[in-house]
């Protein structure tokens, strides 16, 4: 579904991302982990054609993302709050996204009905603008909006950050459900090793812009990753 070819990105001579290439097959749930500055968001931004790679390219559904815009019809994403329209209420925002994705109000309402628990009665029907919601609630809105119009590719940057424990667990359930659908390719980045190993079939570790691990998740993966990230742990006496 998604293929990365010799992708690199540098700013003023400093390389922040350098990937030889890999492929994400259709239906895979793909987890991206790495410390701050590892290049996770840069990779996602390249994938969404929000920044131009210095070399190489990414193909999404057979089209080069920086040449054609056809990938937009089957891709949904939530990276940060710049994907929300602050002066809309959550409902208006969902309908707006629905309009863009060819879903009418009834379709959107039907989808939203599944997320009553997830929203915890803090989002729908509150007559509040998105800009006035808490960070966690904003995130919930952004994540659910990616599901509108049944996209084939869903990209979520740090979906677990800023969420309360209950919501994190519910979100895990939602992502697992998406991942179990063999039609939907899910890409998730996270700092939370436990969450990401639970929801993703495959995990790629980035460090300073390069791919250092590419593993199919198994029961040993969490320990493996923890050992990797603890590697140069400082011993404090």
């Amino acid at each position: 579904m998604i293929t990365v070819h010799n992708l690199s990105k540098s700013y003023n001579g400093v390389t922040v991302l350098n990937l030889e290439g890999f492929e994400i097959p259709k239906g895979q749930s793909f987890g991206l982990v790495g410390n701050n500055g590892a290049g996770k968001t840069t990779l996602f931004s390249c994938l969404l054609d929000l920044i131009q790679p210095s070399t190489g390219y990414i193909e999404n559904g057979g089209v080069k993302v920086n040449e054609s815009e056809d990938w937009k019809t089957h891709t949904a994403s939530f990276i940060d709050e710049s994907f929300l329209i602050g002066y809309l209420t959550p409902e208006e925002y969902f309908y707006f996204i629905g309009d863009l994705r060819g879903e009418n109000k009834a379709d959107v309402d039907a989808l939203l009905a599944n997320f009553e628990d997830f929203f915890n009665d803090e989002i729908i029907g509150k007559r509040k603008y998105l800009r006035d919601l808490s960070k966690g609630n904003q995130k919930k809105v952004g994540i659910v909006a990616t599901l509108i119009g049944s996209p084939d590719v869903i990209i979520l940057d740090e979906p677990f950050a800023n969420l309360d424990p209950t919501t994190q667990i519910r979100l895990k359930g939602i992502i697992k459900k998406m991942a179990s659908d063999r039609e939907v390719t899910v890409l998730v980045s996270s700092h939370d090793l436990q969450h990401v190993t639970e929801v993703c079939e495959r995990i790629v570790v980035l460090e300073k812009g390069t791919l250092v691990k590419d593993i199919i998740t198994s029961p040993a993966t969490l320990k493996d990753l923890e050992a990797y990230f603890a590697g140069n742990e400082l011993v404090v006496e």
């Binding site: 969404l48 937009k72 940060d80 710049s82 994907f83 329209i85 996204i97």
Partner: peptide
């Protein structure tokens, strides 16, 4: 929200 507009 320009990034949203550019990815929709």
């Amino acid at each position: 929200y320009y990034p949203l507009m550019m990815t929709q």
